[in-house]
Design a protein around this nucleic acid. Structure first.
Lengths: 137, 137
DNA sequence: TGCATCAGTTACATGGAGATAACCATTGTC
DNA sequence: GACAATGGTTATCTCCATGTAACTGATGCA
């Protein structure tokens, strides 16, 4: 009786389907934070999907050193990118999308294609909603 | 010279690609919050993609009335679902995926399929990373 | 001597997401 | 008269993501 949708197990009861929390939220939460998808996108554009720390910092407007480090650590922890450290002076570090990270790109791109196609509609819906809400007094 | 990836405009400079922040982060942030994707998933399972407030509340373990209301408002604001209000006593309210909301499902499912396929690898990478980090002293 | 480079780390402050719990109006039922 | 059902709103609290800014260490260069 237990089934699966969007990575989430669910059971169909007399009152309708009942979901239990599960995996995909973790991944969506990671990509939904402020910087992760920008970094992944930037690496997807780079030759060999590989860039230095400073190249990423220069490529993403407004990110601080601290947030870049934190976000890269999280991506490395999840196995989505690989950190190559060269103990030179000054030190050099390169970040590269892992095999798993690269395998994510097509699926992610399919979804972001939908976003690109519908973004103006979403913005219009928001404006419409906000202006209608303004009336209630 | 300006191009587009993942909904984000970028320019290729001598130092590599430079991204400017843009739309898709908004949508990923919405779906990456704690409850949104659970609600969308639940509605995608329902007949006519339509459920009552109380049915959603019963279908999602642990969600509070407040967070359900807030998350539904945000989805309605974005035009991803439609709110049907019936002024009976006690009141009845039904939430239905909009046309745009339904059109999102295939792309979203493609992406969550990738997540489902790679989730165990991600968890393994996390454990590996955490145990290696533990050694450093 | 002093400053720049690179890739960070550390300390501190802040806003907002989310949790918890009480309250609301209307009606039907016991 | 008390209570349940429905679909909320409101107040208060906590915690975490994020921002800002200073500091690090080895070396090259002026």
């Amino acid at each position: 009786m237990s089934q699966n949708i969007y990575g989430r197990p669910y059971t169909v009861t007399a009152r309708g389907p009942v979901l239990t929390p599960c995996a995909p939220h973790d991944v969506l939460a990671r990509l939904g934070d402020k910087w992760t998808i920008l970094i992944v996108s930037l690496l997807s554009l780079a030759p060999e999907n590989r860039l230095r720390f400073s190249e990423i910092k220069n490529g993403i407007t407004g990110i601080s050193q601290r947030m870049l480090t934190l976000t890269l650590r999280n991506l490395e922890r999840d196995g989505l990118l690989v950190r190559h450290y060269f103990p030179e002076v000054p030190p050099r570090v390169e970040y590269e999308l892992s095999t798993m990270g690269k395998s994510m790109l097509p699926a992610l791109e399919g979804f972001t294609n939908w976003i690109r196609s519908n973004w103006t509609a979403i913005e219009a819906a928001r404006q419409n909603f906000d202006s209608r809400e303004q009336d209630r007094d």
